[in-house]
Simulated assay, not measured.
Amino acid sequence: MHHAVFEKQLASLWKQIDNSKVAPHKHVLQSITQQIIDNINQGDLPKWLTALSELPTIDVDSVGLNLDAVTARGMPTLNEAEALQAQLELLHPWRKGPFQLFDTFIDTEWRSNMKWSRIEPHLPDLSYKSVLDVGCGNGYYLLRMAQQKPELLLGIEPGLLQNVQFWAVNQYIKSQAGILPLKMEHMPEHMQCFDVVFSMGVLYHRKSPIGHLEHLKGLLVKEGTLILETIVVDGDKQTCLIPKDRYAQMRNVWFLPSTDMLCLWLERIGMKNIEVLDVSTTTPEEQRSTEWMRFHSLPEFIDKETGKTIEGYDLPKRAIIKAQR
């Protein structure tokens, strides 16, 4: 059943790719994507796809992509509004957002608009550009970027729930953005076809952070822009924390460099015009449990006595860095 849904959902994305700088790589991407889809083994997928198929058809009067909550406006009947809310709730947990779909406000774990407001003023013009967002989650940032009408807006995200959440939202937003269910390691090296590449919240999950940065560089056209966001620690060019086990209860966290060390890594791989745009400590105002993400979140991972993470580390600080190939 899922093959047909992917085919339908990805059809317009492949057309977008045909008309973009990424066109020469389309067949490779298609065959990698097909392999992934053929080997899907996710027991909850049928449940999520049923919820997707049961979303009501609602006329959209207008959309708002430049608001904190990505918004679709219209006048659903009471039955439609209730059906919409019920099906969207079946796609729990919602981590990135928020979204306002008619009467339903999806109050997500992350108030991703806060991160977006730190990044947006520094972005190059995205109109008519090819843009890639690595580990894009449910596409909240892609939808915020869609405001600028890029030539291609592509996200990659291996989490199938996040892919389905994006399809659900985009059924009403009707953006040109698209997501492929791929990991970074599935992307061909040295594609050199994206004007702007985003990697947000990915680097600290990589055992080989420099390899990740080199791969990102290889995806960019000459002079292309990288927007990198990751957790950093205080310190100088020599400082890097490798947590002993978990970090703020996150598994699979490897390298947490200082901002200076991160800039040095980018320099070493030959990136230019490296600029630190923002360093902010993540607070429970930005990341917390909600009705739409009922698991533990940042507040539960902070030791109230010390104000550090429950493992004894400083609270997560996130740096946003811009660099050019």
Rank of each mutant, 00 (worst) to 15 (best):
K129V: 02
K129Q: 14
S130A: 14
S130H: 03
S130K: 01
V131M: 11
V131T: 12
V131D: 09
V131W: 08
V131Y: 07
V131A: 10
L132H: 03
L132W: 03
L132E: 02
L132R: 01
L132D: 02
L132Y: 02
D133L: 03
D133P: 02
D133Q: 02
D133S: 09
V134Y: 00
V134P: 00
V134E: 00
V134Q: 00
G135E: 03
G135T: 05
G135F: 02
G135A: 03
G135P: 06
C136D: 00
C136G: 01
C136R: 00
G137D: 09
G137Q: 10
G137A: 15
G137L: 09
N138C: 09
N138P: 04
N138T: 06
G139A: 07
G139M: 07
G139P: 06
G139L: 06
G139N: 06
G139H: 07
Y140E: 12
Y140L: 13
Y140W: 15
Y140K: 13
Y141E: 09
Y141H: 15
Y141N: 13
L142G: 06
L142A: 08
L142W: 05
L142P: 08
L142S: 07
L143D: 12
L143N: 14
L143G: 01
R144S: 06
M145E: 04
M145Y: 13
M145W: 12
M145C: 11
A146Y: 01
A146Q: 13
A146L: 01
A146D: 13
Q147L: 06
Q147V: 06
Q147H: 10
Q148L: 03
Q148I: 01
Q148A: 15
K149A: 14
K149R: 15
P150M: 11
P150H: 11
P150E: 11
P150L: 09
P150D: 11
E151L: 13
E151H: 13
E151T: 13
E151Y: 02
E151R: 15
E151A: 15
L152C: 10
L152G: 07
L152M: 10
L152T: 07
L152H: 06
L153N: 13
L153S: 09
L153C: 08
L153D: 05
L154Q: 08
G155P: 12
G155C: 12
G155R: 11
I156H: 01
I156C: 03
I156T: 04
E157G: 03
E157Y: 05
E157W: 05
E157I: 04
P158V: 03
G159N: 14
G159K: 14
G159E: 12
L160C: 11
L161A: 07
L161P: 08
L161N: 09
Q162A: 15
Q162H: 15
Q162T: 06
N163F: 13
N163S: 11
N163Q: 14
N163P: 04
